[in-house]
Simulated assay, not measured.
Amino acid sequence: MSNCSRCLLGLRPKCDGLAWGLGLCLLFIASEGWAQVGPQLPLVIGKGRESASYSVPIQTLLFFTALSFLPALLLMMTGFTRIVIVLSLLRQALGTQSVPPNQVIVGLSLFLTFFVMGPTLDRIHEQAWKPYSANVLTFEKAVAKAEVPLREFMLRQTRQSDLALFQKMSGIEKTKDIRKLPLRVLVPAFVTSELKTAFQVGFMIFIPFLVIDLVVSSILMSLGMMMLSPVLVALPFKLMLFVLADGWNLLLGSLAASFL
Rank of each mutant, 00 (worst) to 15 (best):
M1E: 03
S5D: 06
L8N: 07
L11W: 13
D16R: 12
G17Y: 04
L18V: 03
G23D: 12
L24I: 03
C25I: 08
C25N: 02
L26W: 13
L27K: 07
L27N: 04
L27P: 05
F28R: 10
S31H: 07
E32F: 04
E32I: 07
W34N: 05
Q36G: 03
P39R: 14
L43M: 06
L43R: 05
V44W: 09
I45D: 09
G46N: 07
K47Q: 14
G48P: 03
E50F: 06
E50N: 09
E50C: 01
S51L: 11
A52C: 12
S53R: 15
Y54F: 15
V56S: 11
I58W: 11
T60H: 11
T60R: 14
F64V: 13
F64A: 03
A66Q: 13
L70W: 15
L70R: 09
P71T: 06
P71L: 08
L74H: 06
L75P: 02
V86D: 13
L90N: 08
G95N: 14
T96S: 13
T96E: 10
S98G: 11
Q103R: 14
G107S: 14
F111D: 05
F111E: 08
T113W: 00
F115A: 15
V116C: 06
G118T: 06
T120P: 00
T120A: 05
D122I: 05
R123H: 08
Q127F: 12
W129S: 12
W129Y: 10
Y132E: 11
A134M: 11
K141T: 12
A144T: 09
A146Q: 08
E147W: 02
E147R: 07
V148S: 05
L150V: 05
L150A: 10
F153I: 01
M154N: 01
L155F: 01
R156E: 01
T158D: 11
D162L: 00
S170P: 01
I172N: 09
K174C: 10
K176A: 07
L181G: 11
V185H: 02
L186S: 03
T192K: 03
S193K: 10
L195W: 02
K196Y: 07
K196G: 00
T197C: 01
A198T: 00
M204V: 04
L210D: 03
V211S: 04
V215N: 01
V216G: 02
I219W: 00
I219Y: 03
L220D: 02
M221N: 15
S222G: 13
L223F: 11
L223A: 13
M226F: 12
L228G: 04
P230W: 05
V233H: 08
L235M: 13
L235Q: 03
M240P: 04
L241E: 01
L241F: 10
F242A: 12
F242Q: 09
F242L: 14
L244G: 04
L244P: 01
A245M: 15
G247M: 05
N249K: 14
N249W: 06
L250K: 04
L252I: 08
G253F: 11
A256H: 06
A256W: 10
A257P: 00
F259L: 03
L260P: 01
L260C: 07
